[in-house]
Every structure is written in C-alpha cells, then in structure tokens.
Design a binder for these strands. Sequence first.
DNA 1: GTGAAAGCGCTAACAC
DNA 2: GTGTTAGCGCTTTCAC
Lengths: 339, 339
Amino acid sequence: MEHPQRRRRATVHDVAVEAGVSRGTVSRLLNGQRYVSDEARQAIEAAIVKVGFVPNRAARSLVMRRSQAIGLIVHEPHSLFVEDPNIGSILLGANETLSEADYQMATLIADSARDIARLGNYLSGGLIDGVIIVSAREGDAITRAVTRLDIPAAYVGHPRDIGDAAYVAIDNRSAAAAITTRLRETGRSRIGMIAAALDRDSGADRLAGFTDALGETFDPSLVESVPLYSYGDGQAGMRALLARHPDIDGVFASSDAVAAGAMDILQAAGRRIPADVGVVGFDDSSWAMRCDPPLSTVRQPAGDLGRAAAAAVLRQVEGAPAPGGGTVLDCPVVWRSSA
Amino acid sequence: MEHPQRRRRATVHDVAVEAGVSRGTVSRLLNGQRYVSDEARQAIEAAIVKVGFVPNRAARSLVMRRSQAIGLIVHEPHSLFVEDPNIGSILLGANETLSEADYQMATLIADSARDIARLGNYLSGGLIDGVIIVSAREGDAITRAVTRLDIPAAYVGHPRDIGDAAYVAIDNRSAAAAITTRLRETGRSRIGMIAAALDRDSGADRLAGFTDALGETFDPSLVESVPLYSYGDGQAGMRALLARHPDIDGVFASSDAVAAGAMDILQAAGRRIPADVGVVGFDDSSWAMRCDPPLSTVRQPAGDLGRAAAAAVLRQVEGAPAPGGGTVLDCPVVWRSSA
DNA sequence: GTGAAAGCGCTAACAC
DNA sequence: GTGTTAGCGCTTTCAC
C-alpha cells in the first residue's frame, strides 16, 4: 500500500537467484521434467514460496504457442441467454471436462456487433487454444472467423455451413417426430406447431420432425413461426394459432418455454389441458415441471452436449489427425400429463 | 507432445517485409500513433490484408503488461447457475460496459476445488487485467487469492471479508424490510419466511430486513432456513413451515424461485393465494410472471449491477487512485396479485 | 544434472 | 517519420 504502483511480480529469474540455480533449472522443475536434483528441487520450491512466484502465462503462451485455455462462445439473443437453462448446463458440462484436463475455460459472450469484431481478434491472439461454439447460426460471422483462422473448434448444434468441423448435436428431427407421434397417438387430429427459431438448425429440424410425423395429414396453416424459444413468443404463437384454428386439439411447441406460454394462453381462453388440447414441448428444462399440468417433453442432455464438445476440441488441440465429424446424442421422450 | 502443423501465423515482421518498412513502423500504426506517413500507412494496411496478419495478444500482453481482458468469476452452486436469471443479466450488463471500453470479458466458472486452484493461477498470469466476482461467499478461496495477488477487482454483492475492495450491491436488507412491511399492511398477522442461502450476505441481509419489519412481532419459529435460492428448496421450506404453522397467512420467500415452490405447495395444500395466504418474493425474475397469481416481489437491477461492477474494475485498471468503496443500487417493490 | 544463450511476437526508446 | 535496438518472462536446445 506504500507504493501506488502494483508491486512487480516475481519472475523465474528471481526464483533462480534466490535458489542459487539458473533459470533453466527452475523452468525444468516447473514443467515437471526429469533431470533436476533433489537438492535443487528443494531450494527452488522454497524460493518460489519465499518470493511469491506465480508463472506469467502470457510469456509462457508466447513461447509454447499454447495457453491451456479454451474459449466457449455463446451467441444468443439477450433474452435467451438469461432464460435458457440449457446454456447453463452446457457450460457446466464443458467446464467439467476441460477442468479435468487442466484447461481453463473462458466463456465469451457475443451480444453485439462490436463483441463479434473483438472476438475475431481475441480468438486468434494466442490466448486460447481452441473454441467451443454454442448456438451458431448459419452465415454467422463468428463461424466465418473461426473457419478462416483455422482455430480448433467444436460446435454445439449443427449449422449447415461449418464444413467438416467437429460438432455435437442432438437429433432434433427424430426427437420432434417421436414426440409428435406420441401426441398424435393420444387421439388428436388437429395438431399445430409453434415453430421457433427457424433460422437455427435446431428450430428447422424440429419443424421437419413435426412434418415427418404427420405425413399426409400435415397442414401448413397449423404451423406458426415465431423468432425465439421464449415464453413470450409462445404466447404470441398460440394466440395466432387459436385465431386461425379455434378447434385445434394438440400443440407441439418447439421449446418448454414456448409451451409454457402456449399453455397459459390456452387456459386463459378456457381450454382444458389435456382434455381439450394436448400440449408437448422440448428441452425438459425447469419450465416443464412448472407447468400445470406438468409438461410432456423431450429431454435434452445439455450437460453431455457440453462434455462431448469439450472432448472434441481437446482432441484437436492435442493434435488429433482427423477433424472429428459429428456426434449425435439421444433425447428420450419424457411423458407427463399435459398430453 | 506433438502439435498439429497449424500453419504459422503472420507476424509484424512479415507485414513489415511485405510493406517495405520496419517493424517499428508497423507497430506504431497498429497502436494508432502519430508519425506514420500516409504512404507507409497504405502500404502497411495492404500488407496486413495480404499476409492475413492478426496481432498476437500473448506477445502484446507480455510487453504491455496489459491484456485488455477482464475476468468475471461466477462462483455458484450448480443448480443456481442454471436457473438464476440474475446471473445472466449481470453477465450481459458487465459485458456491455466492458465491450464499450473495448475490453474482452471472459467468464470463468468456479464449480469445483480444481477450478478454484486453477483460477488462482490463471488470474495472476497476465492474461487478465482485473476481475469481477459474482456471488462470493465469506471465507471464499477465490476472494483470498484475489486479495493476496492484489488484482484489480470489483465484487457484485458485499461479503464482509473483502476489506476495502470495490463492490456493487443492492440493499437487500431494506428492500426485504420494505416488501415485508407491504405484506404486513395487507392485514396478515402470521407471516413466515423461507430464508435461503444464509451463508451469503444477500441471504443473511434479507432475513435481517424481514426481522426489522416485523419488530416485536417477530417469531423465530416462523422462519425456515434452506440452503439454496431454488424452486425445490422453496417447496421444502414451505412444507416445513406449513407443518409447524398451519395457520400461516403470509410468506416472504427470499427469491422468486423459492416463492414459486412455496406457492405450489400452498395451493396443493388447498390454500388460496392471496385470499388465505399472501406470498411475496425477491428478484422479479421470469419466475414472477409465471406464478399464478403473478408474484409481488422486489425488482433487482441485475443489468445495472453488472454495468456498475464493470465500471468499477475499469476505473482501477485504468489507474484510479483509491480502491473505490461501494455502490448500493435501489430495488423497487413490484406489487402484483400474490399478496 | 545444470548453465548459457537463443528466441517466441510484440512495443518502446532512442537514434538518425 | 522511420529504422534499430532492447527487452517483456518464459522454455528449450546444446554444450559442459
């Protein structure tokens, strides 16, 4: 506190002097190599504590061309980042795997054009060895930057324009088909869908699964497209559907939040769930159990998604021969009482 | 450990050669200094594009002793990280301010002992200029590391053991007192509290505000302590309270999620809300509007918290003389119909 | 086993 | 205005 300037941090040099050895020897010990005598080791360890040495990772990264850090980019619209529990689970899962491998995960938010520009710079700056990209959209500026810079990467989700980059995804299409089929089997004949985020692979695939399941009976006017996987958009979508088809008797909402919004509108309009209308969602997030009646939905293994994506970048960073390709995780249907 | 033959990135040297100038000149242009001729500037700019140059931030950090990056540490139990919308809003707010100042924000998750150990190392490694700490607890290992390493820091929340470090907090105590008073004014006489997270300053302060408001009439047996600000703990807390005091007519839950859990238990037990029991929460998160009836609660300005904390670290990083002290933000009561 | 020396890619003094 | 020269703190041959 006597010096306004932050005190200079100890370097390997200081440790070496204190221990009476050379910098090389200190460095060897730090990197766990053989060929350090017990005597030297003890002197160095004591010196490290004495001078309060902490290695400078910027210097280390510079020479090793490796930072032992992985970036995780979340490119979400505002509202979703705040509300979507899947994101939190993905982060935690990825962090778990990275942490075990002794990598530091740094989550980077892409929330504005400025963020995106700065990120391009940051990613190729040598501060990060690879990157996990959550919820990229097609034509995404981040995807372009990562591809151009040739940074080891793994995507959570599977936008069509990532070439042969590694990705981890769920099979949105067949999961959507499965739950739609299940809904249909409860005897519904006028099933609608609130289709959110059609600009994302997940959104588009869920719609595709829905039409798969309905086959011949599919009626495009029973699909309402909304921008986000949000509660508010679920309400809006349901209002539109109800106006067009007052006799609707089943709804597949493309996320639990959307389903929650839809259920509230339906109930406000006097429809009983599941007696009059069966509703199903997607995610098995905390929304599902908050619905009344509890929501039938598809369980998304978000933690596993994060873990697998982390393992995929790590493989590349550690020098895997092939880029990786994709991994597709299973999503069981969780049937409750909303349909 | 072999690394893949990723192609060598262009350096200032390559740019200099291509443009027919010296490295110094390139560097000057990059750092926006005067004294670069128009001619040189154009040659360099062309060369940068041609060779595909992106500055190496590790090298730059090393010499400048600055990385233009700020870490944001989230030290939350698993479930909360996934469910608490405040965290997302804080992140977004902080990122906004940091981004405007052209700093990269990197969110670091402290989820295991291993994470915490690695973080200490990472923070002092020169890859980060300062740190924002969200939801530190007292006696926190992260707090100790940050203090010991003397890293510019700002806390969101106000644990008692951060010395004179900068912090941004809300006045949990008076906000809790305000909403409790409001609840009491609806004519309730047996008001209980589900007090979550008493190991945190926020949790302890909300309880203190509750007792402030009740004064003489405070009855300790009407307080049920639960570990987390979660829906599940809200249910558990309410069950306990109901068992002890079947005649309870008001509940202050220390978060909206807790309130939601409590309401569901109350309604399952046949109590009408607000007729039989008035329930109020804290946060004004998305839970509040999902409750039926909509929850009366306290609005927490999470985005502002993030913005203010970011501004506080920035001030220190840019060399403010005094450490900063605290900022306390206001939390208006949002009255709806659950009480 | 250990020290000396050569950089990693960049910026900042200081000549010219 | 621009080139030259030192390093920033670290790892890593390569002699000894």
